[in-house]
Lab assay of single mutants.
Amino acid sequence: MIINNLKLIREKKKISQSELAALLESSRQTINGIEKNKYNPSLQLALKIAYYLNTPLEDIFQWQ
């Protein structure tokens, strides 16, 4: 199971779900699903999230 700190990191950087979704060329619903652990992002999307949040991938997503 993958757990994530996306919501915590996103809020700390003062970025809304909609703003992050626009940067990622994704939907706000996708970001919401990832944050609620209802959806696991593809590797490509996970890497883009890490890039746009300027945060190491392993700080956002962790195996448990």
Rank of each mutant, 00 (worst) to 15 (best):
residue 30 T to P: 02
residue 3 I to C: 13
residue 42 S to L: 04
residue 29 Q to G: 11
residue 21 A to K: 02
residue 16 S to N: 06
residue 36 K to H: 13
residue 34 I to T: 01
residue 64 Q to V: 12
residue 39 Y to V: 14
residue 7 K to Y: 05
residue 44 Q to M: 11
residue 15 I to S: 01
residue 32 N to Q: 15
residue 44 Q to D: 12
residue 18 S to F: 11
residue 9 I to Y: 09
residue 37 N to H: 09
residue 16 S to Y: 04
residue 59 D to Q: 13
residue 8 L to E: 14
residue 25 E to F: 10
residue 51 Y to W: 10
residue 1 M to V: 09
residue 11 E to D: 08
residue 7 K to V: 06
residue 13 K to I: 08
residue 16 S to I: 06
residue 18 S to R: 14
residue 12 K to A: 14
residue 12 K to F: 10
residue 3 I to E: 07
residue 11 E to V: 11
residue 36 K to D: 13
residue 36 K to W: 07
residue 29 Q to V: 10
residue 60 I to L: 12
residue 6 L to E: 04
residue 57 L to V: 11
residue 10 R to M: 07
residue 25 E to P: 14
residue 39 Y to S: 07
residue 13 K to V: 08
residue 23 L to S: 08
residue 47 L to E: 11
residue 21 A to V: 04
residue 55 T to C: 08
residue 24 L to R: 01
residue 3 I to G: 06
residue 16 S to C: 05
residue 50 A to Q: 03
residue 52 Y to S: 06
residue 61 F to L: 02
residue 46 A to H: 03
residue 8 L to H: 13
residue 20 L to R: 01
residue 2 I to C: 14
residue 30 T to D: 05
residue 38 K to N: 11
residue 58 E to K: 12
residue 63 W to C: 06
residue 46 A to M: 10
residue 61 F to E: 00
residue 44 Q to V: 11
residue 34 I to N: 02
residue 54 N to S: 12
residue 11 E to N: 09
residue 18 S to T: 13
residue 62 Q to V: 14
residue 3 I to L: 13
residue 9 I to Q: 04
residue 63 W to T: 03
residue 36 K to Q: 15
residue 34 I to M: 04
residue 23 L to T: 06
residue 56 P to W: 06
residue 12 K to N: 10
residue 7 K to G: 06
residue 39 Y to N: 07
residue 15 I to M: 15
residue 29 Q to L: 10
residue 13 K to D: 02
residue 2 I to D: 04
residue 32 N to L: 09
residue 38 K to T: 13
residue 29 Q to C: 13
residue 9 I to T: 05
residue 16 S to D: 04
residue 2 I to R: 10
residue 57 L to Q: 01
residue 21 A to R: 03
residue 37 N to K: 08
residue 25 E to L: 12
residue 32 N to Y: 07
residue 10 R to K: 00
residue 39 Y to E: 10
residue 7 K to F: 06
residue 10 R to C: 12
residue 12 K to S: 14
residue 19 E to C: 11
residue 11 E to G: 06
residue 56 P to M: 07
residue 47 L to A: 10
residue 33 G to N: 15
residue 42 S to W: 05
residue 14 K to P: 02
residue 56 P to N: 08
residue 20 L to A: 00
residue 3 I to D: 04
residue 24 L to I: 15
residue 24 L to V: 15
residue 47 L to W: 08
residue 43 L to C: 15
residue 27 S to M: 04
residue 37 N to A: 07
residue 61 F to T: 00
residue 27 S to Q: 06
residue 51 Y to C: 12
residue 62 Q to G: 09
residue 58 E to S: 13
residue 15 I to D: 00
residue 8 L to Q: 14
residue 46 A to S: 05
residue 48 K to A: 09
residue 39 Y to I: 15
residue 58 E to F: 11
residue 49 I to S: 00
residue 7 K to T: 06
residue 32 N to K: 12
residue 53 L to C: 03
residue 20 L to V: 01
residue 38 K to H: 13
residue 29 Q to T: 12
residue 37 N to S: 10
residue 28 R to M: 13
residue 39 Y to L: 14
residue 33 G to S: 15
residue 35 E to G: 02
residue 50 A to K: 01
residue 13 K to P: 01
residue 11 E to S: 09
residue 1 M to W: 06
residue 44 Q to W: 11
residue 26 S to Q: 12
residue 46 A to P: 01
residue 46 A to E: 04
residue 9 I to C: 09
residue 14 K to W: 06
residue 36 K to A: 13
residue 35 E to C: 05
residue 32 N to V: 13
residue 56 P to S: 07
residue 36 K to N: 15
residue 44 Q to Y: 11
residue 52 Y to C: 11
residue 64 Q to I: 08
residue 19 E to N: 10
residue 38 K to C: 13
residue 60 I to T: 01
residue 30 T to R: 10
residue 55 T to N: 02
residue 62 Q to S: 08
residue 16 S to H: 04
residue 46 A to D: 00
residue 29 Q to W: 12
residue 19 E to Y: 11
residue 48 K to P: 00
residue 2 I to Q: 07
residue 61 F to W: 05
residue 7 K to R: 14
residue 19 E to T: 12
residue 49 I to P: 00
residue 14 K to L: 09
residue 38 K to Q: 14
residue 13 K to F: 11
residue 2 I to P: 05
residue 19 E to H: 12
residue 63 W to D: 02
residue 4 N to V: 08
residue 48 K to R: 13
residue 1 M to R: 07
residue 16 S to V: 03
residue 42 S to K: 05
residue 49 I to F: 02
residue 36 K to G: 09
residue 53 L to H: 00
residue 28 R to K: 13
residue 4 N to Q: 03
residue 28 R to N: 07
residue 2 I to A: 08
residue 62 Q to T: 09
residue 22 A to V: 11
residue 22 A to R: 14
residue 23 L to C: 11
residue 41 P to R: 03
residue 54 N to R: 09
residue 54 N to I: 07
residue 63 W to L: 04
residue 21 A to P: 00
residue 59 D to R: 08
residue 18 S to A: 13
residue 59 D to S: 09
